[in-house]
Design a protein around this nucleic acid. Structure first.
Lengths: 196, 196
DNA sequence: AATGAAAGGATTAAGCC
DNA sequence: GGCTTAATCCTTTCATT
């Protein structure tokens, strides 16, 4: 998929607000026909921009356990293993891996049981330390991001034009308006990495 | 809505995997007719268990900025204000409020700009400190939770029967199999609160 | 990307247990 | 109350331009 145009963004925004909204409805909003919207959504799915259509649940009504944030300190070599273990665990909702290799996750657990859960899930050998925080609230906003963020340089925030570049840093795509921003970003990333 | 039965859970799980899946398809899976599924989904929406149908996007393909985790240290009185400010901010994806009153959020920002973003969004007066971590990866699993978590006591993990109780602790609903578990949980919560 | 026809899904209403 | 079936209406898909 080359570039997302303004219409793609509006379609994504409408789907983020209501993923079951008929394409014919969306077509009216964006000034296209229903088949045209359907084609664009298919393309967005195939390119991986759309990962899945899903449902946002109020999990506090599901009696699934207390909501906790678990911070795992992980030695550099174990990050991928720990991440995989956590992502495969049943009670886990979110997983974040920081640039310096810590793994954070949120999960629904019995609060008295977290130590056992960590031991069972990742094992104590794979991590150097862990910390658990009880969460009182959480929210998730499926926004697409305003146009002002559409092409912002990941270093300086200026608009990325066709002169800009996209580069991989630590396995993830980032976008820069110029090569000096890329260099500055990369240096910061590597410094973080070295400290870890 | 009284109780979610096993069928409701399976419907939610199927919708979490594909929110655009036809109700007639789902009906086949769970052994009901399409109107019956539609009625259940409507009830789930009305009771607030289903907050919205939405789309999970690969935001790294949207050129929306670097993914950062911002941890805000917030004085007790300001938690609600800071939370509201962060939840209203355009670049924010997730917001977590810990039981001891810190506010964490993930956002897509230009990495060089985070200080300015925090100042603009929450103001420096409302917080005592903040910390920014670059995120290398993140994942979100819209799972409904297995039956084993369906009625787990939030303190001990045992099954909550009809003898159990639901109580509010710090504004959130929790479920307990007995009153001593509730007391233990509440005491832990209040100790955390006092330390903050 | 639009159109129109055909196929498929959602919703309604009536009736059952 | 919650379910089913059948009819209607709406949405999606496909072939064509």
């Amino acid at each position: 998929m080359g570039e997302l145009d303004e219409t793609d963004r509006r379609i994504l925004e409408l789907l983020a607000a209501d993923a079951r909204r008929p394409y014919s409805d969306i077509a009216d909003e964006v000034g296209l026909s229903a088949p045209a919207v359907s084609d664009r959504v298919t393309a967005l799915e195939e390119s991986g921009v759309v990962e899945r259509f899903t449902v946002d649940l109020d999990r506090s009504q599901l009696r699934e356990g207390a909501h906790v944030l678990v911070t795992l300190s992980v030695p550099p070599g174990n990050v991928d293993d720990v991440r995989a273990a956590v992502e495969g665990a049943d009670a886990v909702e979110h997983v974040f891996v920081t640039a310096d290799g810590d793994v954070l996750c949120t999960a629904r657990l019995a609060a008295a049981d977290v130590r056992a859960w960590v031991t069972d899930t990742v094992g104590t050998d794979a991590i150097t330390d862990f910390d658990v925080t009880l969460l009182a609230a959480s929210a998730w906003r499926p926004s697409v991001g305003g146009a002002e963020f559409a092409m912002a340089c990941d270093e300086c925030g200026n608009t990325v034009t066709s002169e800009g570049e996209t580069a991989r840093v630590g396995g993830d795509r980032y976008h820069f308006c110029c090569s000096s921003c890329e260099a500055a970003f990369r240096e910061r990333y590597e410094r973080h990495d070295a400290e870890a």
